[in-house]
């Protein structure tokens, strides 16, 4: 972003990568695929790079409002300084926080999640599913991330991205507004679970595997970790792939 600014240019959209997308090895792949999609359709985008910083989401859900607002205000200062108007995020938690909680602190932007971007591109005819891996007839089940689904009512965008693949879309019993959490939300990602009789991600994977999928589609880097761990635990890594919507889209287009 700093380079673009120095050249006196403004991006059409800022890609907010997020901490998982920046540091987590698995999520980094998704980040690169989102970039490939943006590049493929010729959108002029920018990233903040080292100027990006945690949105404060995990701190806020853990109850640390101080830390959240410190992060938020620092980020808002950076975003406003670059005169950012539109943001696409790679993570539903970043998406929810910037979209819903930043405006009250002085940061109002048009924020979309990457699955919404993909849906828009498909609707505008700029993105298809051709020239790459064929998903035709493959069984895909989609896991709704809580902070995209229930938290913000976005259920159709990710499904739209899968529909164009001509794949066989199968829903889990608990889906959309009734979707079961992967177990990572509310800062659970960063702690051991409380005492119980099962891990939440295992409960979810059991349900996902009941649909006999070849691909479990995700839209959140935290869900990705939880679901991948679950598949690993069930020793199904060979038969079942956990892929982000962005990865599936990039693959289908041979990017």
């Amino acid at each position: 972003m700093a380079e673009l600014m120095a050249a006196g240019e403004e991006p059409e959209i800022l890609f907010w990568v997020g901490c998982a997308g920046s540091y987590d090895e698995r999520a980094q792949k998704i980040t690169r695929d989102i970039c490939k999609i943006l590049h493929h359709v010729g959108i002029k985008y920018a990233v903040l790079g080292t100027e990006e910083s945690c949105t404060g989401d995990p701190a806020k859900r853990a109850g640390n409002e101080f830390l959240f607002q410190m992060q938020a205000m620092t980020n808002i200062e950076v975003l406003n300084a670059y005169n950012i108007k539109k943001i696409v995020t790679g993570c539903p938690h970043c998406f929810n926080t910037i979209k819903n909680e930043y405006p009250g602190l002085g940061g109002s932007y048009d924020v979309i999640h990457h699955t919404q971007l993909i849906q828009d591109l498909i609707n505008d005819g700029k993105l298809k599913a051709e020239g790459g891996e064929s998903f035709k007839g493959r069984k895909i089940t989609y896991h709704d991330p809580c902070y995209l689904g229930r938290a913000n009512g976005i259920y159709e965008a990710p499904r739209k991205a899968l529909e164009v693949l001509d794949a066989e879309l199968v829903e889990m019993k608990r889906c959309k507004s009734n979707g079961l959490c992967c177990g990572a939300g509310g800062a659970q990602m960063f702690k051991e679970p409380e005492k119980g009789n099962k891990d939440i991600n295992v409960e979810r994977i059991d349900e996902a595997l009941q649909t006999n999928p070849q691909v479990i589609a995700a839209g959140c880097p935290f869900c990705m970790t939880m679901l991948s761990d679950g598949v690993k635990l069930k020793d199904k890594e060979q038969e079942v792939k956990v892929l982000d919507i962005a990865e599936i889209t990039a693959r289908a287009n041979g990017l």
Partner: peptide, 12 residues
């Protein structure tokens, strides 16, 4: 309180 994933399923 620390077992909550803030998933909003209860609210829904």
């Amino acid at each position: 309180i620390w077992a909550c994933t803030s998933c909003n399923a209860c609210v829904e």
